[in-house]
């Protein structure tokens, strides 16, 4: 479980988060939503220890995150950043980067590390791509390879910053389906998302942000019911029940 207590965060001369207190519950998928520039990515980066809070504290399992050694933290929390490099190396070599927190010097992977890589690729459905070059893959496939790297990292918590950016709707749904499957294996997932319908559909809990503050947080259905999403985004919405599930329409 990650917890932010009274956290102010941002960049020199520009505070973006103002006394934010949130909890990402263990074993759940939490979606962070909000208009552009409201501080979603800043919140995720602060939780991921990429940004040091200006004040307040960030706790992982009750311990301040600053107290973890870098590799120790990386074994517990894996992060999918917003900008993703695409080096010209094989898929397997790329996914092996996820084992970096476990590699001693001189960084020679053991058989067990390769097994983790194979398992991650298998889980993500890309086992046949093991020897392909990453730069040859499509955007959707690359995104999945990144997810496989996070899986190889074998961390309990996955922090994903806009995991579906640049993907077509088919790949978006496939990737989010994968995320839910990973959650079913016990992973705690936190996702920054732009698509409100998908955020409500694929998350157990929602954190709605506005101008660096939390506008609402709680179970996805409750946050929708509160009407706060419509208020913050200045939109109208409709909830529809199909045979399979509830759908949300924003317009």
């Amino acid at each position: 479980m990650i917890e932010l207590r009274q956290v102010c965060a941002g960049y020199p001369g520009k505070e973006i988060l103002h006394e934010v207190s949130v909890t990402f519950p263990k074993g759940q998928v939490t979606g962070i939503i909000g208009p552009n520039g409201c501080g979603k990515t800043t919140l995720l980066k602060t939780a991921a220890r990429l940004l040091k809070p200006l004040s307040g504290e960030v706790l992982l399992e009750g311990r301040p995150v600053s107290g973890f050694a870098p590799k120790e933290f990386a074994r517990r929390v894996a992060v999918l950043p917003q900008s993703r490099a695409v080096p010209s190396i094989t898929v397997a070599s790329f996914v092996m980067h996820g084992r970096f927190p476990y590699l001693g010097f001189p960084r020679t992977p053991a058989k067990a590390d390769w097994e983790k890589v194979d398992e991650a690729l298998e889980q993500i459905g890309l086992a046949a791509y093991r020897h392909r070059s990453l730069s040859e893959l499509s955007g959707g496939e690359r995104q999945k390879v990144y997810l496989a790297m996070l899986l190889a990292q074998d961390a309990e918590v996955l922090l994903l910053d806009e995991p579906t950016t640049y993907l077509d709707i088919n790949h978006q749904l496939e990737l989010l389906g994968l995320v839910r499957k990973l959650n079913e294996t016990g992973k705690t997932v936190v996702m920054v998302m732009h698509d409100l319908s998908q955020a409500l559909r694929f998350s157990h809990g929602i954190i709605l942000m506005q101008e660096g503050e939390i506008a609402a947080q709680g179970p996805a259905g409750d946050v929708y019911e509160s009407g706060k999403i419509n208020e913050v985004f200045h939109v109208r919405s409709q909830r529809m029940q199909s045979e399979e599930r509830i759908h949300y329409l924003f317009y």
């Binding site: 980066k45 991921a48 220890r49 990429l50 870098p70 590799k71 120790e72 933290f73 990386a74 074994r75 929390v77 894996a78 992060v79 950043p81 900008s83 993703r84 490099a85 080096p87 190396i89 070599s93 980067h97 996820g98 970096f100 927190p101 590699l103 001189p106 960084r107 990292q153």
Partner: peptide
């Protein structure tokens, strides 16, 4: 050559490298 693997991780970007446990 000894630290070449670290260079691989670093080319993923400073943020990604940090999240993988690298200083």
């Amino acid at each position: 050559l000894l630290f070449s693997y670290d260079l691989n991780v670093l080319t993923l970007g400073e943020e990604t490298a940090s999240t993988l446990g690298m200083r």
